[in-house]
């Protein structure tokens, strides 16, 4: 996996001779370099391990929390990061934990049980109705999905269509990108199971809200096509504002 990441880095970055180290730290037998790959590029952290008189490449990281020394104490505020990086970090932490749980449950209880653990549709639909109180249930679910995925989780979302019987959402989830860009997830779980968790979650959420859901992929973009199941429950709104 790391081998593939290094090859991909080489293919997408300027020639290695142009990479410039900006800082270095030795931690025991680990050597950590912070470097740029081009004059205006983001920072990359390269970690090496020294063992038996040889160095080994260990890790490539694109996120750095800007703390380079212990701040004056007592300290109650700490440097922030752009929202997009924080969203990525939250998703990586949560996904890693979910995959760790999935692999345990699959081993102990079987794949179907492990997948069913992640079905949270009823609760998700309650949240949609509670937090979007002035929309119909159908609209509330679809618009909550869009809001939650974009505003709360930092995913790119495009709502292409919404009426009482049909909706179409293009979602570019960090979750899907994570599998291709981190090495540890691919060590833990197959792509088939990884996407099965994602699809199980969304199909259960759609089911709870009375929608059938068809999912397809366009690269790392997930196209979600919702079709209303059963009769449409009409609702009315009074606005005294």
């Amino acid at each position: 996996m790391i081998c593939a990441i290094l090859r991909r880095l080489k293919a997408s970055a300027p020639p290695p001779q142009e990479w410039k180290t900006k800082a270095f730290r030795q931690r025991g037998n680990r050597l950590v370099f912070v470097a740029t790959l081009a004059p205006d590029s983001d920072l990359f952290t390269f970690t090496f391990e020294v063992d038996g008189g040889r160095w080994f490449f260990s890790h490539l990281e694109t996120i750095q929390i800007p703390l380079c020394s212990v701040p004056p104490l007592p300290a109650s505020s700490f440097p922030d990061l752009p929202e997009s990086k924080k969203a990525w970090m939250r998703e990586e932490i949560q996904t890693s934990e979910n995959i760790r749980l999935f692999t345990f449950l699959k081993r102990e209880k079987g794949r179907d049980f492990a997948l069913s653990w992640f079905r949270d549709g009823e609760g998700y639909f309650v949240a949609a109705r509670a937090w979007l109180p002035l929309l119909s249930e159908q609209e509330a679910f679809i618009l909550y999905l869009c809001w939650e995925q974009s505003v709360l989780r930092g995913n790119h979302v495009t709502l292409e269509h919404l009426d009482e019987t049909r909706a179409k959402v293009r979602l570019q989830p960090i979750y899907v990108k994570l599998y291709d860009t981190t090495s540890h997830l691919r060590e833990m779980i197959s792509r088939e199971d990884y996407l099965a968790i994602f699809e199980t979650v969304w199909k259960d959420r759609a089911r709870a809200a009375g929608w059938d859901l068809k999912m397809s992929y366009d690269g790392t973009c997930c196209v979600m096509e919702f079709t209303k199941r059963g009769p449409v429950r009409h609702s009315r709104i009074w606005n005294r504002g």
Binding site: M1, R7, W19, E49, D51, F57, S58, H59, M188
Partner: peptide, 26 residues
């Protein structure tokens, strides 16, 4: 490391993996 990366396309996966030790053993 830069030398290794410079010629990584011509290097076999086994040779590259010989220079890799993941940070998180899995």
């Amino acid at each position: 490391f830069v030398e290794m990366m410079t010629s990584i396309e011509e290097t076999s996966s086994d040779e590259v993996m010989d220079k890799v030790k993941p940070l998180l053993p899995l």
